[in-house]
């Protein structure tokens, strides 16, 4: 019998993915709280749809959609993560010690995603409330149509940052290659300093609030205007 303090180790070289995910789902009804997954070997859809307060450590690189739609769990990927890591995350925390591929935390609605390395294109695309902290750089078209939530970038941002952005707050410490349609630099007010400071702290990022610039929506595309046709 396992108790709540034991660490449940699952070897994906032996255990089928389906069985692992099923067990993680069943953990909602009790059983081990701490999990260690070894030999992920780039598996797709790993640890998706968890709905319980678990600690999950994945030792190695993962494929697409790791920890997708996560609720409550704290998932750490000790390696690089493929496309759409933490897509549509609802709550809990996902930490990637390496780099994240495209569409990191896409459409995320809550919780926190921390990337220790770099994140590729479309980081935070269509985000809806998630908080994302990337300690390295992010790729082009990040925060495209980002609706709400916060994106913190300690390194540089690629082209077309925040294109067609709605109400998401973006903070970038380094350079921004280019801003997308309707995204502008905005004043860093006390509220934003507090928000940024809190996120740098929870993410364990070694950076100072005053080194960042804030970007957000100019709100000129919110209602259709024919004179903006070129921007749509």
């Amino acid at each position: 019998m396992t108790t709540a303090t034991d660490i449940e180790v699952v070897d994906l070289a032996v255990t089928p993915l389906r069985e692992l995910n099923q067990r993680l789902h069943d953990a909602k009804n009790g059983g081990p709280k701490s999990w260690k997954i070894v030999n992920p070997n780039g598996a797709h859809a790993l640890a998706v749809g968890i709905d319980a307060d678990l600690d999950v450590l994945i030792e190695g690189h993962t494929g697409y959609y790791t920890a997708g739609m996560n609720k409550h769990a704290n998932v750490t990927i000790d390696g690089n993560a493929g496309v759409g890591v933490g897509e549509n995350i609802m709550s809990g925390t996902i930490r990637i010690t390496g780099n994240a591929s495209q569409a990191c935390a896409a459409t995320g609605r809550g919780g926190l995603v921390v990337v220790e390395g770099d994140a590729a294109a479309r980081c935070g695309i269509s985000m809806k409330g998630v908080e994302i902290v990337v300690k390295g750089d992010i790729g082009h078209m990040s925060a495209f149509m980002a609706q709400s939530g916060t994106l913190v970038v300690c390194g540089d941002a690629g082209d077309a940052l925040g294109d067609s952005i709605y109400e998401t707050h973006i903070y970038v410490r380094g350079s921004v290659k280019g801003l997308g349609a309707d995204c502008i630099e905005k004043e860093l007010k006390d509220f934003h300093r507090a928000e940024l400071g809190r996120l740098l702290e929870v993410a364990g990022a070694d950076a100072k609030v005053d080194e960042f610039k804030r970007y957000g929506s100019a709100r000129t595309l919110y209602n259709f205007n024919i004179d903006n046709a070129g921007a749509y």
Binding site: R18, H44, A45, V48, Y65, A106
Partner: peptide
């Protein structure tokens, strides 16, 4: 949006569907 945010093309869609099946236990 007219394109999905986290997949492009049928090869990605196959993986997306796998994710949806895994989330909902097939």
């Amino acid at each position: 949006a007219c394109r999905h945010p986290d997949w492009t093309g049928p090869d990605d869609l196959e993986i997306k569907i796998q994710e949806l099946r895994e989330i909902t236990d097939w």
